[in-house]
Amino acid sequence: MNTKDIVYIALFAAVTAVFGLFPPITLPITGVPVTAQSLGPMLAGAILGARRGGLSILLFVVLVALGLPLLSGGRGGFGVFLGATGGFIVGWVISAFVIGLLIEKFWDSLHIFNAALSIAVGGIVVLYAIGNLWVSIVVDVSYWQATVGAAPFLIGDVIKVAIATAACLAVRRAYPLISRAR
């Protein structure tokens, strides 16, 4: 891990915090709030790769736990991990790692489909698996009930997968970090 890796890790944690400063957009009809912040883990994984991306989001999550109000809406402290969304925040770390792992695998022949697939698997499938499990334990409901409850948030996350995919491909052309790492 050289100096540049440490700086990338720290700056993507800062980017994730900055995404939390944008006001959430409320989706029409469902009224579900969508924040830009969960783009952070997707981009960290897709641009920095598994190890650096995962560590970057871990760094962010630890700072939140230490009491910095870095989550969207100025939330922070230990309390947020005990709430219903706690699993999603912890899940971001694994989500970024998985996205990075898949993007690295596809790197040499990366195109819109396998990039979108990588980000969707890490950013939706893996993330929701962890988040919903957390909800089912904290709220004491079945896993299936938790999954149904989380469904409205899917729309926002599908949009974010699309944005992260396009951004990952655009940045790959200008700044190919993953190939440089290997």
Partner: peptide, 25 residues
């Protein structure tokens, strides 16, 4: 356009990171 914000933000962050790493070294 969110993309018109995100892509330049990431590129400039990476450029910043390179300069910061140089300064640290």
């Amino acid at each position: 356009s969110v993309l018109a914000l995100v892509v330049p933000l990431i590129i400039r962050t990476l450029k910043t990171a390179d300069d910061v790493a140089d300064a640290i070294d």
